[in-house]
């Protein structure tokens, strides 16, 4: 399997570390325990397109948001999780 790293190009999956669903957002400080519990533990298991966090640990060391089809493993796109600086368009 290959992941199209926006900076490095197409790379073998072995260069990456998988984290999981990219959609949960960390609750703000002093948030309720229930919200934090949901953020830490509760995950959907969708069939089809899924946005996931992957870390390019053996490449550019960026966290990516990778769109993957959980049914076909097709990876149509990947983007950097953090916003880029001006002039660093990739």
């Amino acid at each position: 399997m290959r992941i199209p790293c926006p900076y490095c190009g197409s790379r073998d999956i072995g260069e990456f570390v998988y984290r999981g669903d990219a959609s949960p957002v960390r609750p703000a400080a002093d948030g309720a325990e229930a919200a934090m519990f949901a953020y830490v533990y509760l995950r959907d298991n969708p069939m089809g397109r899924h946005e996931e966090h992957w870390y390019h640990t053996q490449g550019c060391r960026n966290w990516l948001v990778v769109t993957r089809d959980t049914l076909t493993h097709e990876i149509p796109s990947a983007r950097l999780a953090a916003p880029l600086n001006a002039g660093d368009a990739v």
């Binding site: 926006p6 960026n62 660093d88 990739v90």
Partner: peptide, 13 residues
């Protein structure tokens, strides 16, 4: 060049 080269290793790095 040999005196100074910049090698791209990641976005902004």
């Amino acid at each position: 060049d040999g005196a100074l080269a910049l090698i791209g290793t990641g976005p902004g790095s």
